[in-house]
Design a protein around this nucleic acid. Structure first.
Length: 651
DNA sequence: AGCACGCCGACT
DNA sequence: GTCGGCGTGCTC
């Protein structure tokens, strides 16, 4: 609060000019000079509202400025409450991240503030930081490693025992912690667990933070000397720099990847932030990502693994059942029957993404993959061709399977409707519920689940939506109708995704104590595929998938960028994508440039879409080349460029 | 991102 | 003769 004119003499009674970077796309941190006529000092990094063109925009103070000549300098409209100003270390850290992700510093800094911030009221003593220039974009994310890193692999109980231990240790050293969970609905449990060791220091922050109390919690995370901050993806930017540990629970989850720009991945940000602060990093997982597994294998992460529990899993080979096309195999029907007879519940999982126009060999289950990159190829009905969307390689669709010579091709995609009618036909007396996007409109997930959990036999047919629901009813049998159809997606992580989905089904009922594991019956056309075998032998999956990724030079053995181009003028989009590819190759000859190719969805909302993939062993080399190329492209043109420096898929 | 300026087609 | 398309450029 303003304390009767005690603000610094030097900034009173005179015009104060400040350089502001405005958070507006394509402006890329261009500086604009504004006048500050309000009370108090606006420190480096302060967030302000400024008139911009005929509208307003948010921006950040980066330095003091001279009165510019020949420009009609406008006044800063207001400053946001400087109590929310992140500390200098976080500001600098985000400078590095901006370089790493090829985005503007302004957009990166925006992540450091809650969505709604009050205006600054009167004079607020800012934290002591100077008005230096912006931090050097050193973008050397790995140079500062000194903290310990570990992979906590096992059940929820196993992981949280370790988390609490570490949080407690750090508190004894006077250090706070940051705990990330994949979904908002996981926060309640995380908070109550952490309260056991950290009591009132536990500070939940929430991305859907519009309410006053939410904002207050965010502030507490900044102000408390050693907060134990809990939150989802966006919370990776919250809290002070006095952190002893950063914990990422269920790190395999792609919900850590931001879907909007800046396209950061909270897992990587967490790791870099821990390294930057010299804090420990804990990655927790019931089935680690390949990224985490590879680091543990190299010894970069210390491994704390709970012994694998035996699983009851049966893999049903659909190839054996011939051309008959039913959603439920006889083997599954048998198992369902015995489950219903003793009053148990069955969950049938159907991955709905199998609608794509794919062909697999009905005799041997072979899916044709691209010889250049290993991604499954996509059938283009129009030209009767198989196309690799990663390499832009097209070949005639073969008449006979190159593996077994079979000529019976199957087009994928049986819908949930068909499955439902089959279940109803086989088990007319068993109550049947559905949980998918189409049925969600009529009732909530919880309503469906509670009806499903009423005593007696019942069957639930669900998609991804059903996974990860807390308090899932006691299911004794899980049937996977078509979990592996996404193997046919042109995506370097398709196998990993199938593996995680299948392993996740084993955890359906796992909530806290009293865990149990259902028996699982997985129907598949790929019974020998390592991602399906991973249900029984996860280690074999990891080793095989790692070997595959290494042989084709994909993550985690190399950095991969996905650069998207979109606009309504097809030729301009294509030309700019070509130009960009050329410039990248020029900037750094070692870079593998794949494409440009039309995006898997080549036209969306009347916008044409092309993409380029870049690969190189070193992420920073890619970032540098990418920024160099972007800098040389004339910023005109109605083509939007999106750089994803850490894609989780190639869509 | 908005928004204004500016130079070529079909309308009262 | 004007209204209006959106390509190009600017925003302190």
């Amino acid at each position: 609060m303003r304390s009767g004119g005690t603000a610094p003499e030097s900034v009173f009674g005179q015009d104060l000019f400040l350089d502001i970077i405005v958070d507006v796309p394509s402006l890329d941190d261009r500086r604009f000079t504004y006048r500050w006529t309000g009370d108090g000092v606006l420190p480096y990094g302060a967030k302000v509202r400024v008139p911009f063109g005929s509208a307003f925009a948010d921006g950040f103070v980066v330095s003091r400025a001279q009165k510019p000549e020949g420009i009609n300098v406008k006044d800063i409209s207001f400053a946001y409450d400087t109590r929310f100003l992140p500390d200098r270390e976080m500001l600098d850290f985000c400078g590095r991240l901006a370089g790493y992700y090829c985005v503007s510093l302004a957009s990166m800094w925006s992540c450091l503030w809650p969505p709604v911030i009050p205006k600054m009221k009167g004079y607020v003593e800012p934290r002591p930081v100077g008005l230096e220039g912006p931090p050097e974009r050193i973008v050397n994310g790995d140079a500062l490693s000194q903290g310990e890193e570990e992979l906590v692999w096992g059940s929820r109980r196993h992981r949280w025992a370790r988390y609490l231990e570490v949080v407690k240790e750090e508190l004894l050293r006077g250090k706070g912690s940051l705990v990330l969970v994949p979904e908002t609905k996981e926060m309640g449990l995380a908070v109550s667990k952490l309260r056991e060791v950290a009591g009132d220091l536990v500070t939940p922050v929430c991305s859907e933070m519009t309410g006053l109390s939410r904002r207050e919690e965010w502030l507490q995370a900044l102000i408390r000397p050693n907060p134990v901050v809990v939150g989802t993806r966006s919370a990776v930017f919250a809290g002070t720099s006095n952190l002893g540990a950063i914990i990422v629970d269920e790190e395999w989850s792609d919900s850590y990847k931001s879907p909007e720009t800046p396209l950061y991945d909270a897992r990587t940000v967490a790791r870099h932030r821990a390294q930057y602060l010299g804090a420990r990093l804990l990655l927790g997982s019931s089935h680690p990502s390949l990224w985490a597994y590879a680091m543990a294998r190299e010894g970069a992460l210390e491994l704390r693994r709970e012994p694998e529990r035996p699983v009851s899993a049966e893999i049903v080979d659909l190839r054996a059942s011939g051309p008959r096309r039913e959603a439920l195999s006889p083997a599954l029907i048998e198992r369902m029957k015995s489950a219903f007879e003793v009053g148990e519940k069955v969950f049938l999982f159907l991955n709905k993404r199998g609608e794509a126009s794919q062909v697999i060999c009905q005799d041997c289950g072979n899916t044709i993959t691209c010889p250049l990159c290993g991604s499954p190829m996509v059938y283009h009905a129009k030209e009767r061709k198989l196309v690799c969307h990663t390499c832009d390689r097209a070949e005639a669709s073969p008449d006979r399977c190159p593996k077994c010579g079979g000529a019976r091709w199957r087009f994928l995609g049986f819908g949930i409707e068909k499955a439902a009618s089959e279940v109803a036909r086989h088990f007319p007396e068993v109550p049947l519920y559905r949980l998918d996007k189409d049925t969600l409109a009529s009732e909530t997930v919880q309503e469906t689940l509670s009806r499903f959990s009423m005593p007696g036999p019942a069957c639930l047919l669900g998609t991804q939506l059903a996974l990860g629901q807390l308090g899932f009813p006691q299911v004794r049998l899980v049937g996977v109708l078509s979990g592996d159809t996404i193997l046919n997606l042109p995506d370097f992580r398709a196998s990993e995704r199938v593996f995680h989905t299948l392993r996740r089904l084993l955890d359906l009922g796992a909530y806290w104590e009293g865990e149990y594991e259902p028996a699982i019956v997985a129907q598949t056309y790929n019974p020998d595929h390592h991602s399906v075998r991973g249900l029984i032998d996860p280690d074999a999956f990891y080793e095989e998938e790692l070997a595959l990724r290494r042989s084709v030079g994909y993550p985690p053995f190399a950095a991969l960028f996905k650069v998207g181009f979109s606009g309504k003028n097809h030729d301009k989009v294509k030309d700019l994508a070509r130009e960009f590819s050329r410039l990248c190759g020029e900037a750094e000859p070692d870079i593998r440039v794949l494409g440009p190719i039309p995006s898997p969805k080549p036209k969306v909302r009347n916008q044409f879409r092309w993409q380029v993939a870049l690969r190189h062993p070193d992420h920073l080399t890619l970032s540098r080349a990418c920024r160099a190329a972007l800098g040389k492209i004339r910023p005109a043109s109605q083509v939007k460029i999106t750089v994803d420096a850490e894609p989780v898929d190639m869509w």
